[in-house]
Write a protein that binds this DNA or RNA. Sequence first.
DNA 1: TATAAAGATTGTAATATTGCAATATTATAA
DNA 2: TTATAATATTGCAATATTACAATCTTTATA
Lengths: 110, 110
Amino acid sequence: MGATKTEHFSAKQNQLAVILKAIAHPARIAIIEHLLKVQACICVDIVNELPLAQPTVSQHLRELKNAGIIKGNIEGTAICYCLDEKVMAQLNQYFSKINIQLEKQKNACC
Amino acid sequence: MGATKTEHFSAKQNQLAVILKAIAHPARIAIIEHLLKVQACICVDIVNELPLAQPTVSQHLRELKNAGIIKGNIEGTAICYCLDEKVMAQLNQYFSKINIQLEKQKNACC
DNA sequence: TATAAAGATTGTAATATTGCAATATTATAA
DNA sequence: TTATAATATTGCAATATTACAATCTTTATA
């Protein structure tokens, strides 16, 4: 035991968990917010921006990339990372739907 | 090493990370979706709904509660859990803002 | 009061995450 | 071609998470 029992949950639930897990770290939230601010970005900028060592930042970037949250274009020795609009739109929709539901229900019990 | 360096990030970033981390597990997403569906709910319902043992479900519920995502009212021997509207609204706003930003920028680089 | 029912806690094993030093890779510049 | 600059990978120690059996707590009912 110890590992998440993904096989018992739906593909959608697992996929959402992967995306949210990738975002759910202060360093990765900081990376996302920085990418949003500067629009395009090379990795060394992010290393200078964050209080973490270069390999650690690189690792966080990889996790964001694996989850499909950011895309990277090679530009010489640098890499231009930016946010993936589709994934962010998907998250927006998910939480938007939940809120619409909750509005309808308005304190059904608690 | 090993622990997240929360002290180097902003309070907002850390708070968001805590909330997202609490949601970022398929079992907890399933719990949230179930609470949304049935509106009010006692724990044993959730145990029957999920492919996990009672202590595991209880632990997941506690994590959601600690993060402020669900609220619980004692009702006899049962407990009525439901979603906290404020936190869900906060998440909705966060991702909504990101999407508005991304719409404006429209492929600045990648 | 004894019993049962619903949940919470505790303890623990298995696994995952975080962070970084050292090192490797890759592309440009000299 | 050799250096340099930017980023990735590897390996590892510290810490966190996941899951559950066993046990405890609390409330309701017989």
